[in-house]
Computed example of a mutant assay.
Amino acid sequence: MAWRCSGIGWPQEARMAVLRWEGGRVSPLLAGKALGFRAEGVRQCVGARGNLCPLGAVVPGRVTQARCPECARLDRAHSVAADTIADDPRVYRVYLAWFGPGMTKAGITAEERGSARLLEQGAVAFSWLGRGPLMAARRTEEVLRSALGIPDRIPYADKRAVRARLPATAGERAAEIEALHGRALALDGWAQTLEPLGFDAVDHAGRFGLEGLPPATAVVRELVHDGAVAGTLLAVAGPDLHLRTADGEIVVLDTRLMSGWSLVGADAGAGVSVPTAGLGVGTGGGVQDGLF
């Protein structure tokens, strides 16, 4: 039976990530679990905003967003990240997120989402900085970028490259954001409607399974028809699965590459028979209760 993946999720009530499937099923992602799948056919556009792609378009295997140009434009038109919803009435939070030494970014997320956005990005540690209306949060994000040189994006290739050699303690991992938090609160130019929040570091290394994680040797570049990805799950950080294959290789799979494909189960010993690259290169019968 073929399943279609609709992305990874980080339920607030659970301590583990799950893979979500069309139809509402989920597969818990447990460290030490054997998993495997094989792609079938072609990768199709997943549509936008809950609507099917009217063209049933085929999309490239190496892009992380499985949408054709038309559906991508529709999805972007309703995105907070694109600054197209200036009148959003929700409360937003500004955060500082740390992914490794020298890799701290600023960002915003709706307060109602809690820390989900940080988990989705693979933030190893973070602290809230302020809360208030959307445009005030946006202005503060821009002030931080211009005054302190804090970026709003960290490439995933950079995040993956350092996960196996992070500082050992939560205190060490939080040191950079603590220093930046203090500098940020001292800046002029904060929006008057944004409430500053005290430093309170949250560490995700344990939740991601990064402690003792061996260095990765390769990253999956794309899925292909009849290509398999299989192994034992070691860690999950953001959208990335770190797998140990049957031959001992440590391979990273960005689960965003799975969307749009029809997937069938494969034995955990099937290994990886899809295109890969070194780190730093862009990137039966009865009721079936899980693909793996």
Rank of each mutant, 00 (worst) to 15 (best):
E176A: 12
G280S: 07
D240G: 02
E195T: 13
L233M: 09
L194V: 15
G290Q: 13
R73N: 01
A230D: 13
W21Y: 06
A81M: 14
A230Q: 14
M1N: 11
A136G: 13
R153G: 08
G50A: 02
A110H: 00
A175R: 14
G114R: 02
P214E: 11
N51M: 12
G24V: 01
R20T: 00
A147F: 05
R221M: 05
R62K: 13
R221Q: 12
V274H: 13
V162E: 11
V202H: 15
A161G: 06
G209W: 07
P239R: 07
D200W: 02
V91S: 14
V251D: 01
G171M: 02
V94A: 13
V58M: 09
D75N: 05
A164L: 02
T232E: 10
E142V: 11
R90V: 03
P275V: 00
G56I: 04
A14H: 12
L185R: 14
L166G: 00
G238C: 08
A31F: 03
R145P: 01
R49H: 08
R160W: 09
V59Q: 06
M103W: 03
A270I: 03
L223G: 09
A39R: 03
H242N: 11
P214H: 04
G149H: 09
L118M: 15
L148A: 01
L263A: 10
P133H: 01
G171W: 05
C68R: 05
G24F: 00
Q65D: 14
R43D: 10
G278D: 12
A216G: 13
G238T: 04
R153D: 13
T193W: 01
G282P: 15
V229P: 08
V224Q: 05
G50Q: 08
L19S: 07
P60C: 03
L35P: 07
D240I: 01
V251A: 04
P28S: 13
C45E: 03
L185V: 15
M258A: 15
A57M: 10
K105I: 08
G286R: 14
R73Y: 02
D75C: 10
L129S: 05
A174M: 01
Q192N: 04
Q65L: 15
G132L: 07
G47C: 10
W190N: 06
K33E: 11
G212L: 03
R62Y: 12
V264N: 09
G286Q: 06
R165E: 12
T169S: 14
V281E: 14
Q288D: 12
G189M: 12
G271A: 07
S6W: 11
L223D: 12
I8W: 03
V18Y: 02
R113P: 00
A191E: 11
G248M: 13
L35H: 06
L253D: 14
A237I: 00
P101T: 14
I154T: 09
E211V: 10
G7P: 12
V202Q: 13
A179G: 08
G122M: 11
E141P: 06
L52T: 02
L96H: 05
D75V: 01
R117L: 05
P239W: 07
S79W: 04
A2I: 13
P214I: 01
